[in-house]
Design a protein around this nucleic acid. Structure first.
Lengths: 149, 149
DNA sequence: ACACTTGGTCCGAGTCTCGGACTTCTAGAG
DNA sequence: CTCTAGAAGTCCGAGACTCGGACCAAGTGT
């Protein structure tokens, strides 16, 4: 893979981060235009909440942030009405973070921009390289997503 | 590209973010073990500083963070000795953020872990898919890196 | 029954976020 | 040469975040 010594070269991490930030900024802008006020960290944590809910501990693992941070961010998301905390039926210690109706609206509001950016990337890369990108990233997820372990 | 409605599916942004966070966490852990104490935001901003220095405004653009945030983060990096601010010879309003010797040590200290993670990914994907991944991401950079515009 | 681990909250201190205000400087038009 | 608009960066202030340690309750395994 790339060598980091050349000024123009960047490591693979940064190659991943640059388009991610691009997509994220586009989505955050669109959400703001539709009255959704989230911070970057809130959005990054929110996107790791499964449709059927996710435990605080799992959210911490998935986003690789300390549980105290997750607690604080979920407080804010709850306050804004995007999520609710409910007791975990299988573990009295746990709380499930669930997406509310307003949270569903947030998800729905982000989809058009996500699709739009994905389409622009597909246009730029061509169908073959787009598919290769998605396939490689999906495969990589098996060894990088701490939420799957 | 992927549809976001299936529970297991994630959009391309998240597919990019997951391995990035993995790499980032691995690097942050290694740096901490070697006595480098940076926050996530400091590291994300630091990695956008070019070897020959980068102006504050360009750092803000590259990282897509407000200039006030960049000011605060660069304050912290300067205080920790990783960067210095110097006047821009071509523009009296501008300051160049330059990497110090200690910053060079930080860069050097991160390289082994970056290489290691890249190698593990290459092993997992195989050489063909690895090359496809790097190629697609490099190509994508042309339309996503606000630092290149 | 007990020891260890996990889940989550709380506290506190420090970092970050970011809009608005402000000053200084640059570029471009007339 | 003058003037205007925009850019660069700092400052302020309020709120969000980061995160280790402490703590308590609950679960797991022996």
């Amino acid at each position: 893979m790339t060598d980091t010594t050349a000024a123009d070269d960047v490591n693979l991490g940064l190659l991943l981060f640059i388009p991610y930030r691009f997509m994220e900024s586009a989505v955050m802008t669109a959400l703001r235009e539709q009255g959704h006020e989230l911070t970057l960290t809130q959005a990054r944590v929110f996107q790791r909440i499964d449709p059927q809910g996710t435990r605080m501990a799992d959210l911490a693992r998935a986003s690789q942030l300390p549980k105290q941070t997750i607690g604080s961010v979920v407080d804010q998301l709850e306050k804004s009405g995007y999520v609710r905390r409910v007791p975990d039926p299988h573990d009295a210690r746990s709380r499930q973070v669930q997406i509310t109706e307003r949270g569903d609206q947030l998800v729905a509001a982000s989809i058009p921009t996500v699709r739009q950016v994905e389409a622009a990337w597909r246009d730029h890369l061509g169908p073959t390289r787009s598919q290769q990108l998605v396939e490689a990233l999906t495969e990589l997820r098996h060894i990088t997503d701490t939420h799957l372990s």
